[in-house]
């Protein structure tokens, strides 16, 4: 079941269309990657979900109901451009933001203390934000985003600007939150993190959704019947054996006597056909299907779209 459904969202600014008939569905309990190049419309969509701006057309449903102002209390949002009041004390500020999300003061204080202990930052409570380093401030920002235990968490480019240690800490926290039932939406163009933690994704390019689904399915969809084969044997007779039905994309010597070849299956050829062809001329060491990385898919889709535009 989807916790969030955006249906046919259109949003235009004075001179350009930011979102063009965008529909996405975020399954409950998933970590959803919202991908796309800069300026594709990701932040516009996120702002609409957060009710910061309104769509020109289309509907948003949250938990099956149309999005209402009360829903902000169930959503946590860490924007890409994030900051804190410099002159305010860390504890005060976190409390203020929590209360704006509808939390009671006592409850917020208690939960905040727990988080401060978990992140080992208890002694920051009375520090002013301007005394914190960037990394420290990011921790505080993350805590203020999740403090009110939102059902749905939206993080816009969460890993940009984080050092690897903090990025890892956040990753672990996200996985822990998902276990507790939180649905998480990540907007990013860091494909590595998508592959690592996302299970669903949507790719927005040029204001439109061009790809959507389970990360596994999308990857399968982009498989091209290419295999990496590692063997021992004579390269010339190996090449000759691939004369029909196969294409040798590339090859290289790996260890002594071993060669790794990337082979594409042509027409209706199967893996069995390939094995039958090469077994007589070589000693096979391993055979793996090449699964495209999200990075490859991203570049491929975005470039294809640009090609269509021209």
């Amino acid at each position: 079941m989807a916790i969030l459904e955006a249906e046919n969202i259109t949003k235009a600014y004075a001179h350009h269309l930011a979102l063009d008939d965008v529909s996405i569905a975020v399954p409950k309990g998933s970590i959803f990657g919202l991908l796309g190049p800069n300026g594709a419309g990701k932040t516009s969509l996120i702002r609409i979900i957060n009710q910061i701006t309104a769509p020109d057309n289309g509907k948003i449903k949250f938990g099956g109901k149309f999005l209402k102002p009360e829903h902000v209390e169930k959503i946590g949002y860490l924007p890409e451009e994030r900051g804190l009041y410099k002159k305010m004390k860390v504890g005060e500020q976190a409390l203020y933001l929590a209360r704006l999300k509808g939390m009671k003061k006592d409850e917020a204080t208690k939960k905040l203390k727990d988080w401060f202990i978990r992140f080992e930052i208890q002694n920051w409570w009375n520090k002013k934000v301007e005394e914190l380093s960037k990394g420290m401030a990011q921790k505080v920002q993350f805590i203020t985003t999740v403090l009110h235990e939102p059902k749905f968490l939206i993080l816009d480019e969460p890993f940009s600007g984080f050092d690897p240690i903090n990025a890892n800490l956040i990753k672990e926290e996200l996985l822990r939150l998902r276990k507790k039932g939180t649905t998480i939406m990540l907007s990013t163009h860091n494909m590595g993190s998508v592959e690592e933690i996302c299970d669903h994704m949507a790719l927005i390019n040029d204001s439109k959704v061009v790809l959507q689904g389970k990360v596994k399915d999308v990857k399968n969809q982009f498989k091209e019947g290419v295999y990496d084969l590692v063997f021992e044997g004579d390269m010339l007779s190996f090449t000759n054996s691939l004369w029909v039905n196969f294409e040798l994309v590339s090859h290289q010597k790996t260890e002594e006597n071993f060669t790794s070849a990337r082979i594409r299956l042509l027409d209706k050829a199967t893996v069995n056909d390939l094995l039958q062809a090469v077994i007589p001329v070589s000693k096979i060491h391993s055979l793996n299907e090449v699964i495209p990385s999200m990075n490859d898919i991203f570049i491929k889709v975005v470039q294809k779209n640009e090609g269509l535009d021209e």
């Binding site: 910061i52 902000v72 959503i75 949002y77 924007p79 804190l84 009041y85 410099k86 933001l97 704006l100």
Partner: peptide, 18 residues
């Protein structure tokens, strides 16, 4: 201007109306 340049404004307007 302070809220804008501190970049806290987007966090706040995700909780309240501008």
């Amino acid at each position: 201007m302070e809220e804008k340049s501190n970049r806290i404004v987007e966090v706040i307007i995700s909780s309240v109306k501008p």
